[in-house]
């Protein structure tokens, strides 16, 4: 995990401390929908009976989340931003097999 991706700073505060926002470039976002494979589903279903952490699902969501962030950053880069502020995340379960992960924030220019 890098805090600066492609020269774009990503934070979830409204401002970046020590910098001044000079230009607002609008809302940018990125999302992924990921499904697990059947094998994983079966092992995790067994794990689910006993309770506790479902490690494979944790990994899967982590991967998808970083992909969503990467897409958001690409969107911001296309607009010529050098930072994204006030980033938020949303998760929704579309069906029992797939989850949508969505990251959005405001692309800005800072100095």
């Amino acid at each position: 995990m890098q805090h600066i991706r492609d020269g774009i700073m990503v934070v979830n505060t409204e401002t970046i401390a020590g910098k001044v926002i000079t230009q607002n470039l609008g809302v940018v976002g990125g999302s992924t929908v990921r499904a697990k494979n059947v094998g994983r589903d079966i092992t995790q279903a067994l794990r689910n009976i006993m309770g506790g952490e479902l490690v494979k699902y944790t990994e899967l969501l982590e991967e998808s989340r970083s992909e969503a962030i990467a897409r958001m950053v690409a969107d911001a880069a296309a607009r010529g931003a050098n930072a994204i502020v006030n980033v938020r995340f949303a998760t929704s379960a579309v069906t029992s097999g797939a989850a949508e992960l969505f990251a959005y924030g405001t692309a800005v220019k800072v100095e």
Binding site: M1, H3, I4, M9, N48, V87
Partner: peptide
């Protein structure tokens, strides 16, 4: 310097 930190866990 500042940047995003995140973590997640699936628990049943």
């Amino acid at each position: 310097n500042s940047g995003l930190v995140y973590s997640s866990i699936v628990y049943a």
